[in-house]
Design a protein around this nucleic acid. Structure first.
Lengths: 168, 168
DNA sequence: TTTTATTTTCAATAAATTTTGAAAATAAAA
DNA sequence: TTTTATTTTCAAAATTTATTGAAAATAAAA
C-alpha cells in the first residue's frame, strides 16, 4: 500500500472509530492527521488536507488544544500559528483518561452517592432494587476509578501494576 | 429524596452519561429502568414509564437483547413478552467490554497491522512518522487488549479465589 | 497610524441521528 | 378456521449535531 492511501485510510478509520466513543469524527480526524505529520501544521494545511471549512477546523482544533492533545506553536518568522500533536501514545491515552474521568466519571460517582441516600420504606422491593443497583454501580465505579488513577500515574509498565491494583 | 425523583434522575443521568460513550441515550435509559426494576417489564410498561413510542422501545429493546444486557422472559399465563436486565454490574461491564472489543477494538487492531506494512522510501520522514504512530497505537492497543481479556476472564471473586489458594 | 494577514465567532444551513406511528407480520386464543 | 393481541418494520417527521462561510475581531507588518 502507498503512503497516501494508508494515510487516508488511517484518518478516516480513526474518525469512525472515535465516533463510537462519543468523540466528534472531525476532531478525531484532525488529531489523526497531526499524529502522523512529522511537522507542525497550520489551520490552512488541515483545511486543505481534510477538505474542511475554516470555522470547522478552528473549532475542532481549539477543542483538541482544550483536551491538551494538541498544542499551538509559534514558529519564528512565520505569521501563521502552527499546531502539533503529542506523539507519545501513552501520554495521549492517559491525558484522555484523565479528562474523561474528570468530566464524566467523577460527576456520575458524585450523583450516585446522593441517589443512594434515597428515603422510603425499607421493605419496598422497588427501593431495595434501586439502592442495590445504584450501590453496585457505585462500587464498580470506585474500582474503575482506582484502576484509571493507577493507569494515569503509572508508566509504560502499567499492565502489571494496574492488574495488581485492580481488585484491591 | 423520594424514590420517584431518584429514579427519574438516575434514568436521565444514566442516559446522558452513556451518550458520551457512543451509546444511544434512549437505549441507556431503558437499560437503567430495567436495572432498577425488581420485576420484569413489558414493552408497554417501558413506553409508559419513559414516554416513548412503541417502535422506539421495540428497537432499543432488541438492541439491548442483542448486546445480551437484557433477556426476554416468557411468563406462564401471560400473553405479553417480559424483559429483564442482568443486575450484576460486574457481568454487565464485562459483557459490554467483550462486545465492544469484538466490534471495535479487534477490527481496528487488524487494520493497524495492515497499515503498518505501508511501502515507500525508508528515509521519508512522513513515512517514518506514519509507521511510528501506527506502530505505537498498535502496541498500546495490544496492551489494552490483554488487560481487557484478563478482566473479562476474571470474575468478581478473583481476589478471593487467589487468596484462598494461598491457604490451601 | 493604516494596511494586510490571520483567527475567531456564530447565525444559517446541511447532515446525521433519533423517534414516531400506522401498517404489516406474527402469534395466541376462540 | 377466524378473531384478537402483540410484536415488528420502516418511511416520514422531528430533533440533534455538525458544518459552512462570511463578518467581526485580533494581531502583525508597513
Amino acid at each position: 500500500m502507498k503512503l497516501a492511501d494508508a494515510k487516508q485510510q488511517f484518518i478516516s478509520s480513526w474518525g469512525a472509530f472515535a465516533s463510537h466513543w462519543g468523540i466528534n469524527k472531525t476532531m478525531a480526524q484532525i488529531h489523526a492527521l497531526l499524529l502522523i505529520s512529522p511537522d507542525p501544521l497550520t489551520q490552512d494545511d488541515v483545511m486543505e488536507e481534510l477538505s474542511l471549512s475554516r470555522g470547522n477546523v478552528n473549532m475542532n482544533m481549539r477543542e483538541l488544544v482544550d483536551w491538551a492533545l494538541v498544542s499551538r506553536m509559534i514558529i519564528p518568522g512565520e505569521r501563521k500559528e502552527f499546531f502539533t500533536a503529542e506523539k507519545d501514545i501513552w501520554k495521549v491515552a492517559t491525558q484522555i483518561i484523565k479528562e474523561r474521568k474528570r468530566r464524566e466519571l467523577d460527576p456520575m460517582m458524585k450523583l450516585l452517592a446522593t441517589l443512594e441516600a434515597v428515603e422510603g420504606d425499607v421493605d419496598d422491593k422497588h427501593l431495595k432494587q434501586f439502592t442495590a443497583t445504584v450501590g453496585g454501580i457505585k462500587k464498580f465505579g470506585a474500582q474503575a476509578d482506582k484502576m484509571l488513577e493507577a493507569m494515569v500515574k503509572a508508566d509504560e509498565h502499567w499492565l502489571l501494576s494496574t492488574l495488581l491494583r485492580f481488585f484491591k
